[in-house]
């Protein structure tokens, strides 16, 4: 029997349907509301702290006007070093997974462990580097911070490199091999060239991710009140300054912390948006 609009059962099913779909729309509105709420509070609290001092002066004792120059420079240096160390390693592991290992036992295990690494608590990496570098050398240092961050860069670059390499059609490789190109040349001039945008995307995503990471730096780079480009010393960095200043009782430090938070969020989100808009492939969230 074809149900009519007056059938009670049919009516009930339609009401349930409408109600649940409405809830689904509500869910995405709630998700967006959180995003807007967080971003607007950042703007509201962070913008008043924005001035040239932020980029020209060091962190100061409470009561005197200061900036975040040392923290910005420290963060940029440590992230740069981490990306420089982590990228080639990640590229090579990704190359192994996509080109050499295929579905072998080692490749499958590495792929699996790498996936776990992406989601593993970053504070444990900090703990590991602390024991390995800080305890051995006897002091906190920018290098230790960079190493901890590099350990986060590697799995992200590995994952995207593997994904992007696997998207390259097999006949491209075969064509190059048929021309007697050696394997490394096939990888560098064919596979990597075709997928370079995707690979670059992965590197940028990794940069965005480690830029705001605080936990791995807690026991490695620590912090530094003064301007220092010496990677052998404890190094100022934005996330740690934000953490310390936000937890402090001083109003002007809070103001700086909010300004730093806004700065770092704008940087990270802009990087994320650009990468995701430009990328045709679906990117993993990391």
């Amino acid at each position: 029997m074809i149900p009519t609009a007056f059938s009670f059962l049919y009516f009930k099913r339609r009401v349930i349907n409408g109600f649940c779909l409405l809830l689904s729309a509500l869910a995405i509105l709630i998700g967006l509301a959180w995003l807007i709420w967080i971003l607007s509070s950042l703007l509201r609290h962070g913008l008043p702290g924005f001035s040239w001092h932020l980029f020209t002066q060091m962190t100061q004792a409470p009561g005197t006007e200061g900036g975040l120059l040392n923290a910005i420079v420290g963060s940029l240096m440590m992230v740069l070093v981490a990306v420089i160390i982590g990228t080639p390693v990640g590229l090579l592991i990704g190359t192994y997974l996509a080109e050499f290992g295929k579905n072998g036992r080692l490749a499958n295990t590495v792929h699996f462990v790498n996936d776990v690494f992406i989601s593993a608590p970053s504070i444990l990496l900090g703990l590991f580097i602390y024991q390995l570098v800080v305890v051995t050398t006897g002091h906190f240092s920018g290098w230790a911070g960079s190493f901890a961050l590099a350990l986060m860069v590697v799995p992200i670059v590995t994952r995207t490199t593997e994904d992007m390499f696997l998207l390259v059609p097999i006949h491209m490789r075969e064509a190059a091999i048929a021309l007697a190109a050696p394997r490394w040349k096939v990888i560098v001039s064919v596979v990597l060239r075709i997928s370079r945008t995707g690979v670059l995307t992965g590197i940028l995503l990794a940069t965005a991710r480690v830029m705001g990471e605080t936990a791995p730096l807690l026991f490695t780079a620590l912090n530094n009140q003064f301007f220092s480009v010496n990677m052998n010393q404890p190094m100022a960095n934005l996330p740690m300054v934000i953490f310390q200043y936000a937890m402090s009782p001083y109003d002007d430090w809070h103001k700086l912390a909010w300004a730093g938070a806004l700065l770092i969020t704008v940087f990270v989100l802009l990087l994320n948006i650009t990468v995701r808009l430009l990328s045709k492939q679906k990117l993993p969230i990391i």
């Binding site: 967006l32 995003l35 965005a208 705001g212 605080t214 996330p239 938070a261």
Partner: peptide
């Protein structure tokens, strides 16, 4: 656009969530 906006929630650094959570 909606997908990217939701994914941005994952892009916001953890420490920002902490600050926002504590102060706002």
């Amino acid at each position: 656009p909606l997908r990217i906006l939701i994914e941005l929630l994952a892009g916001i650094p953890s420490i920002i969530y902490g600050m926002w959570g504590l102060f706002v």
